[in-house]
Computed example of a mutant assay.
Amino acid sequence: MNDITPRELEVEALRENDGLTYKAIGEYLGVSPTMARHLYVHAKRKRRDALRRELSHGETECPVNVPFLPSELTALQDLLKHVVQTRRHKGKTLSACYTDRDYAAARLLYNKLTGKD
């Protein structure tokens, strides 16, 4: 994720950590609210693309064989299902959810466990 600029990181932090509006971010940084939104969207897109590259790169490597008890797999599946359903019900579209690293990883693992690849 080295391609995310320091300014994009700053906008992302101000938006997500501090809960500032694009207008407030723009005033703080001396840019327009539109530019603040543009920087935020680019940061999120770069993170999503980096996650996709990371996840797809992992698929080309040899799989790790980790022994699980059936009850552990069921618990993991239930947990992943909860993450997927919770994100979907927070009023976000499915594509918006994929910008969240935890959701994307949970969705990928859930699909593998349930055979929905």
Rank of each mutant, 00 (worst) to 15 (best):
M1I: 05
R7Y: 00
R7K: 08
R7A: 09
L9T: 13
E10C: 04
V11E: 07
E12L: 15
A13R: 15
A13Q: 13
E16T: 04
T21L: 02
I25T: 00
G26R: 09
E27T: 15
E27P: 06
G30F: 01
S32H: 09
R37H: 06
Y40I: 00
Y40E: 01
H42S: 08
H42Q: 10
A43M: 03
R48I: 02
R48T: 05
R48A: 02
A50F: 05
L51G: 03
E54P: 01
S56L: 11
H57C: 05
T60F: 06
C62Y: 06
P63S: 03
V66G: 09
P67M: 01
S71W: 13
L79S: 04
L79N: 12
K81T: 10
T86L: 04
T86C: 00
R87Q: 10
R88D: 02
G91P: 07
T93A: 15
T99G: 08
Y103T: 11
Y103P: 13
A104R: 12
A104I: 01
A105K: 09
A105I: 15
L108T: 07
L109E: 10
N111Y: 07
T114E: 08
T114Q: 06
T114S: 05
G115N: 02
G115C: 03
G115A: 07
D117E: 15
